[in-house]
């Protein structure tokens, strides 16, 4: 599978996750969201950028339990709840946000 954007083709796996981490850019994230019928606002971006930083540091996409805890610590307690994250990413915060962030599907994703 692939995403076509401005004449360029970006390879994805069968679930729509980017194959090459380095292909990622903002526009591609918006494009992937559009395909799911979503529009990314600043709250989405906050989590997406958080995930990219987390991956940069630890070389993994965190499991949802770990993500929730870490978001609470970094972005404020009110945001570190699964309710808040599921509202932003109804397909599952770790799964969907990781996809838009260009990361692989989280390890231990349930």
């Amino acid at each position: 599978m692939a995403i076509e954007l401005e004449g360029k083709s970006y390879e994805t796996d069968e679930e729509g996750y980017l194959v090459n981490l380095s292909d990622w850019n903002d526009q591609l994230a918006n494009e992937m969201a559009k395909a799911d019928g979503a529009v990314l606002d600043e709250n989405h971006w906050e989590v997406i950028n958080f995930l990219r930083d987390y991956y940069e540091e630890y070389q993994i996409a965190p499991a949802v339990r770990v993500l929730t805890k870490a978001v609470g610590k970094k972005l404020g307690k009110d945001k570190g709840t699964s309710k808040y994250l599921y509202e932003l990413f109804p397909y599952g915060p770790a799964k969907q946000a990781c996809k838009y962030a260009g990361l692989p599907k989280p390890t231990g994703c349930v």
């Binding site: 630890y58 070389q59 993994i60 965190p62 499991a63 770990v66 805890k69």
Partner: peptide, 14 residues
């Protein structure tokens, strides 16, 4: 090769 050593530092979060 992928460097997975930094991932050990995430174990505390898990």
């Amino acid at each position: 090769l992928k460097n997975f050593a930094p991932t050990f530092r995430a174990l505390g979060d898990y």
